[in-house]
Amino acid sequence: MFDEAFRTLFMSKPSKLSHKNNNLLIQDEKEVFIPLRDIHTIVIDTPQTTLTSSLMKELAKHKILVFFCDDSHLPSGVFSPFLTHYRSSAMLNSQISLSKQDKSVLWQKIIQAKIQNQTNLLKQENKTSTATKLQSLQKSVKLADSTNNEAKASALYFPSLFGKGFSRKDFSPINSALNYGYAIIRGCIARNLIGSGLLPSLGIFHANQFNPFNLADDLIEPYRSFVDSKVLSLGIETELELSHRIELVNLLNTRVLLGGKAYPLHRSITRVVWSVSNFVCGKSRELELPFFDKGSNGREVYESASDV
């Protein structure tokens, strides 16, 4: 599952998008051509951008993900190609047939990785007391997280990271930034799930009948700390500005450790989904999940091709 695309485009100025000779053509004050095969994701952050229908067809052909933002500049919709998998029916049957025991094992691994990454971020920020408490919770996660250690960890983690009294339920610039970053990564996960033949709406733990991305919401959990770290480094005070949004979109290119190797975040997602697919099909009992540490903390852009 190699994805050669590497560019993420952020469109914030009035422009017209079309295509010519397998290139994206951007027309504003001048004309810019970018090979479609190089583009992974496009974020449309202004209503003054127009796209041709023939371009949409080419975007689907080249497996390019497109986010559309609302008046608050938060991602409100996503265009994702079908990316038909050559064994989609067989994959779907395997996913539907996944046993309760296997789902419990998968969810346990996911939550262990999530809490470990939260612990590592707290250690990075010298929140050692809370980090020690989270480490204890991480070690005691049971099958299916039956004792709900995820929620216990979050109740300690967010106030320690963003300040006493902070709540994820508040309407604040920090939460807007977190939601923005989560939405970008969630969409990228959904794109890869479809490409692998897995059904995004059929989750491991999340099971909301109105949610088309339950499985993406499962797999995003270990990635949340990368967003949290980035938001913390931005020092947002009064509002989510354009510069902040650009930085959050660029999270797709941040350096992530996976199985001892470094990848740009968007490509690490490809490998994580691949490992889930192999687990679901019974090919492997191992699960590759991102690891947060000082060299892979959501703040450094991946620059070396030698690690992959």
Rank of each mutant, 00 (worst) to 15 (best):
M1Q: 13
F2A: 04
T8A: 13
S12Y: 06
N23P: 08
E29K: 14
V32M: 11
P35W: 10
H40W: 13
T41P: 09
T41E: 07
I42W: 08
T46W: 06
T49D: 08
T50R: 14
L51V: 13
E58G: 01
L59N: 11
K61L: 08
I64S: 10
F68A: 14
S76Q: 15
R87K: 11
S97E: 10
L98R: 04
D102E: 14
S104A: 15
Q108K: 15
I110P: 08
Q112R: 13
Q112T: 03
A113L: 04
I115C: 00
N117V: 03
L122D: 00
K123D: 00
Q124M: 06
K127R: 11
L134T: 00
Q138I: 02
K139A: 09
V141Q: 13
K142G: 01
K142R: 04
T147D: 09
N148G: 04
P159I: 00
L161Y: 07
S172W: 02
I174R: 01
S176P: 06
G181Q: 11
I184E: 09
I185W: 10
I189R: 08
P200F: 12
I204F: 06
N208H: 12
F213A: 11
L215S: 10
L215C: 13
L215N: 09
E221K: 12
S229D: 10
S229M: 06
I236Y: 05
H244W: 04
R245V: 07
I246R: 15
R255F: 01
G260K: 01
R267Y: 07
R267P: 00
S268G: 07
V273F: 11
S277L: 05
S284A: 09
L287F: 06
E288N: 04
E288K: 02
F292M: 04
D293V: 00
D293P: 01
Y302T: 02
S306L: 12
D307N: 05
V308A: 07
